[in-house]
């Protein structure tokens, strides 16, 4: 196989990963409407190129921290949709044994150090993981994903300062989707280019976050810098979420036409066009899509068949008081 074809095969895998995230989320929203999934869902639809592009630059042993909108990052890092759906369904086979749900899914073996219910909560954790990676001397990196809203938190500034001071192998990826929950960017910060916030740490990069290959290129450069011991990078990836802040949010705060503008730059549409332009046949993309649908069908079945947790499990996995040999509720 020629190098060109190998690259193309690799790109098709990027498309597969993005499509998997897209459909995982759309199906999750549907399953939630049908009553299979309790609690919050913050869909990643529209932002797939960022997770997939960045994770394409990572290797085994690298770690990432995520956000409340975390399914995409977790899938991009290689998580199993069946155990993710099982967690969303609140079943025993879920990644967190039904104790976390969407906001807290985690798998350290994959190097996925967790979604997070706290805006900005993962940033110091990635900084610490990078510190440990540096101590181990194995040239591994930590990546922290977060949104534009998180860059107003103290944890963001403290972590950038500390990691720049100590040249930690960490890449900060700000997914600027232009809304902090319901509030548009111009009403939550006085700047438009978030990367400027890293001026004083000398490490900013801005990238069009809906082009997966550009994201991957920027991430690769940042990761290479981190591995070489040259310290952290802040990447601002400009993107957009197609759905509301959470499922059920009608997003009426968006000005008319804005969604349509961004839909024209849907990362999946843009990348499918790119692949077709490079000679990938439509039938190949159809096969990829069908394989993803089949995989997600199986994942939903797996979740549905997974046992519910027993009430007593609520008192496990944490220190609890006992009285006459019984855990105290």
């Amino acid at each position: 196989m020629t190098g060109r074809n190998m690259n193309l095969d690799h790109d098709i895998e990027l498309f597969r990963s993005m499509y998997l995230i897209r459909r995982f989320e759309e199906r999750a929203a549907h399953l939630r409407q049908q009553g299979f999934i309790p609690g919050f869902l913050h869909p990643y639809v529209g932002q797939e190129a960022v997770a997939v592009g960045v994770c394409a630059a990572l290797e085994e042993g690298d770690v990432i921290t995520s956000t409340h909108r975390g399914h995409g990052h977790m899938l991009a890092r290689g998580a199993e949709p069946n155990r993710m759906y099982a967690e969303l369904y609140a079943r025993q086979d879920g990644y967190n044994r039904a104790k976390g749900g969407s906001l807290h899914m985690i798998d350290a073996e994959l190097g996925f150090l967790g979604a997070n219910g706290i805006v900005g909560g993962g940033i110091p954790l990635a900084t610490g993981a990078a510190l440990q990676k540096k101590r181990e001397g194995k040239k591994r990196v930590a990546v922290s994903f977060f949104g534009d809203g998180a860059t107003n938190e103290g944890s963001f500034h403290e972590s950038l300062n500390l990691s720049a001071l100590w040249l930690l192998p960490v890449v900060f990826v700000c997914e600027n989707n232009f809304y902090g929950e319901f509030t548009p960017q111009h009403k939550h910060q006085p700047i438009t280019e978030i990367a400027r916030r890293a001026d004083s740490y000398a490490m900013e990069v801005v990238v069009e976050g809906n082009y997966v290959l550009e994201v991957r290129k920027a991430a690769q450069e940042a990761v290479d810098r981190a591995r070489a011991g040259e310290g952290p990078t802040l990447i601002e990836a400009r993107t957009y979420r197609h759905r509301g802040h959470y499922e059920g949010d009608m997003a009426r705060y968006r000005p008319p036409g804005e969604l349509e503008e961004w839909m024209a730059r849907d990362p999946l549409v843009v990348f499918a066009k790119h692949l077709r332009d490079r000679g990938v046949d439509d039938s190949v993309l159809r096969e990829v899509r069908q394989a993803v649908e089949d995989r997600l069908d199986g994942a939903a079945r797996f979740a549905e068949q997974s046992p519910h947790p027993q009430p007593g499990e609520a008192l496990e996995d944490v220190y609890t008081e006992t009285h006459q040999g019984m855990a105290l509720r």
Binding site: V63, A108, T127, G128, A129, Q132, S155, L162
Partner: peptide, 16 residues
């Protein structure tokens, strides 16, 4: 303080 404690917790997640 948040970065200090957070860095410690993050390092603990990966073996420290």
């Amino acid at each position: 303080e948040e970065a200090i404690v957070g860095a410690a917790v993050g390092a603990a997640l990966v073996g420290a």
